[in-house]
Amino acid sequence: MQSRHVSRVISASPQSVYEFAANPDNLPSWASGLAQSDVTREGDTLWVESPMGRVSVRFVEPNEFGILDHDVTLPSGVSVTNPVRVMSHPDGAEIVFTVRQLDLTDDEFERDAVTVGEDLDRLRRLVEDLQR
């Protein structure tokens, strides 16, 4: 199994990037690889329609460290942990998403990494537009 760190630098404070990305209501606007519909809440669990079908998502508790790790439980019942960090960068903030191959073929892994990059590009545009 291999991992790939996909990151983007965002011209905004780490706090504003974290707050936007951590807000479940914002997921459909930037995280197409995860949320293609409005988010439904059941306690700490979020439900979304995704490219993989209806999935549940559980984020770590809100924190001051920029950690946005989340577990996605697929329709098959398999749970995947996705490490995500927002950190300070000389140009504002950097968000890093670790993509893990797990049971994916090389082509599927590559598509996942590309999708995450596109999602982070959308996040960057949205957050930077809010700063203007």
Rank of each mutant, 00 (worst) to 15 (best):
P90S: 08
H70K: 09
T98S: 09
N63D: 09
Y18A: 04
S29G: 11
L123S: 05
T115E: 14
H89P: 09
I67H: 09
Q15D: 13
N63P: 02
V80Q: 07
D103P: 01
R58M: 12
N26D: 00
L46D: 00
R125G: 07
P75H: 00
V72I: 15
N23K: 10
T40S: 12
D44Y: 07
D121E: 15
R125T: 14
T105N: 08
D129L: 15
I67C: 12
D119N: 15
M52S: 14
T45Q: 14
P14T: 02
G33H: 04
V55M: 07
L123H: 12
A31H: 07
E94C: 11
E49T: 15
E61V: 10
D121W: 07
E49M: 10
V99K: 06
S13F: 11
V55I: 05
V96L: 13
W47H: 08
L102C: 00
L27W: 15
P24R: 10
F20C: 06
P75R: 02
E110M: 11
E19Y: 03
M1W: 03
E118P: 02
L34R: 01
N26G: 03
L130H: 10
V48R: 01
A12H: 07
Q2M: 09
D103E: 13
V116A: 15
S79V: 15
E118I: 05
T115V: 14
S79P: 00
L68P: 02
R41I: 06
F65A: 14
A21D: 10
P14C: 09
L74V: 02
V72F: 04
L46P: 03
L126Y: 04
R8V: 10
L130I: 11
H5W: 05
S50L: 05
D106H: 11
S76Q: 00
R111W: 12
L46G: 02
E49D: 14
R58S: 08
V6K: 03
L74S: 02
P14S: 10
A35N: 05
Q131V: 14
L102D: 09
E49A: 08
L27R: 06
S88M: 05
A31M: 12
V114P: 00
T81Q: 11
E64R: 15
Y18M: 07
V57E: 04
M52V: 13
N23Y: 02
A12P: 07
D107H: 11
A93W: 08
L102H: 09
P75C: 08
V99A: 15
L120R: 08
D71F: 08
V84D: 01
A31E: 02
M87L: 13
V99L: 03
V72G: 03
L126H: 01
L102I: 14
Q101A: 03
G66Y: 09
D121G: 09
L130D: 11
E19I: 01
V39F: 07
D38M: 07
D112R: 13
R54G: 04
A113D: 03
Q2S: 12
F109L: 06
D121Q: 15
R54F: 05
E108P: 07
E110S: 15
N82V: 12
V17K: 03
W30L: 00
V39Y: 00
